[in-house]
């Protein structure tokens, strides 16, 4: 009976950890996506300096998320985002079209990471 109890306990811990990790990644990525959308809006409004500042904050936020995310998510899913968020502020300060394209790509990749951690039918299969 001890084995059954230990197994149920482990399964409960794993289920809670999986749920928490999924919600954490999803929540943090959603926050990043909102930040990207804010930066895009600022860029469309021609407020390049404010957009660069917002992009810099995005880079910092990603660095903070990255530290914990590497424990929960496979490295290969983070490397592209690392490249995307590195120097995002300088890209936003440069050519507007290129900056918007970069932000668009970054938003898509971040949303993909978030979706991959939520057990939807599409993510499972």
């Amino acid at each position: 009976m001890t084995r059954i109890r230990v197994s149920i306990m482990i399964l409960c811990i794993l289920a809670v950890t999986a749920l928490w990790s999924g919600l954490w990644v999803y929540g943090r990525c959603s926050s990043l996506v909102r930040g990207i959308e804010r930066t895009e809006t600022l860029l469309y409004a021609g407020m390049t300096a404010e957009a660069a500042e917002a992009a810099y904050s995005l880079g910092e936020e990603w660095k903070e998320i990255r530290r914990s995310a590497s424990v929960l998510v496979r490295g290969c899913r983070l490397y592209d985002l690392d490249r995307g968020y590195a120097g995002i502020a300088s890209r936003v300060s440069g050519d507007r079209h290129e900056a918007l394209a970069s932000l668009e790509e970054l938003r898509r990749m971040t949303a993909l990471l978030a979706e991959g951690e939520i057990p939807r039918l599409r993510s499972v299969f």
């Binding site: 794993l14 950890t17 999986a18 590497s70 424990v71 929960l72 998510v73 496979r74 490295g75 290969c76």
Partner: peptide, 10 residues
């Protein structure tokens, strides 16, 4: 090494 130990252990 890209795979976190936690995702291997789960």
């Amino acid at each position: 090494p890209d795979i976190p130990v936690l995702t291997g252990v789960t």
